[in-house]
Nucleic acid binder design. Structure first.
Lengths: 144, 144
DNA sequence: ATACAACTTAAAGTTAACTTTAAGTCAAGA
DNA sequence: TCTTGACTTAAAGTTAACTTTAAGTTGTAT
């Protein structure tokens, strides 16, 4: 069972031209062609397409994804290189999540701030609140 | 107490030219100038700089941050607009985190996969494993 | 008063990751 | 066989968010 570039694009929820671009950049060396030159994706290719999508969604550049893909082409003999890339990416994702969590806390603070401003009638009145009236979790966001 | 563009850039861990670019794009209408034209940042400005940094780090475009900032300039009278932006951004951040978590799970699967390949001697041997030998949490990543 | 590091602007340059265009080819159905 | 929608490539275009450059100004320290 084979899939065309358009079918794969739909599955991956990207533009077909994006898939062609990835191919041109060397991310899809495993994709075979028909006699007429049409790309023929196999079910078996989905594993690689998914990991490529995963690396892309977690911020890896096309260039670095290419490096990763090329370790596959060079055979079965060294899992460590691929493993290192995966483990490093895992650490990067954890950092991204920690950073997002910090930013989420800041947004929570701003929400509290505006809610309080509505209650008290103005932003100035929130600024005048004693520190004891500000939830402890928000103290780190105070500028003065 | 005033800070120059360079001092603020250091605090925010960005290039000074980035701050100037943000100013040019209308993100910093609250920054006053000296008679000679030098930007003078106040401690009081840090709150806005921090929320700008937060919105930027969570993926908001310069254009949309500008919209948010402009609600401040238009005064104290409508917290709802700012609140809506903050709440919407919060939802976006939650989606980002959920997405990162899914990708982290995929990376975990790949790590398991390579570890297993090392144990069994080849990638093919991992492919041959019966489903019962694959942790349940990874079943969703199986392509066949 | 002079030096000099850091500031100023406008404009041009950079980068990554697509996206579009143009001109043509493939392959499945009527 | 013909039509037609989806495929092909190479090359040019787009976008956002900076970053650099050039030429000049400011302000602090000696």
């Amino acid at each position: 069972m084979y899939y065309t570039v358009g079918e794969i694009a739909k599955k991956m929820e990207v533009n077909a031209s994006t898939i062609r671009y990835y191919d041109k950049e060397g991310l899809l060396p495993f994709v075979k062609r028909s006699n007429g030159g049409i790309r023929m994706f196999k079910d078996q290719d989905m594993g690689m397409l998914n990991i490529i999508g995963c690396l892309k969604q977690t911020g890896m550049s096309i260039k670095d994804i290419k490096t990763f893909v090329n370790y596959y082409e060079s055979g079965d003999d060294d899992f460590n290189k691929r493993m290192n890339i995966i483990e490093n990416q895992e650490k990067l994702v954890q950092l991204q999540m920690e950073n997002l969590q910090k930013n989420l806390n800041m947004l929570e603070y701003k929400k509290w701030y505006y809610t309080k401003a509505k209650q008290l009638g103005s932003l100035d009145n929130v600024e005048k609140l004693p520190k004891t009236d500000i939830p402890k979790m928000f103290h780190k966001f105070l500028t003065k």
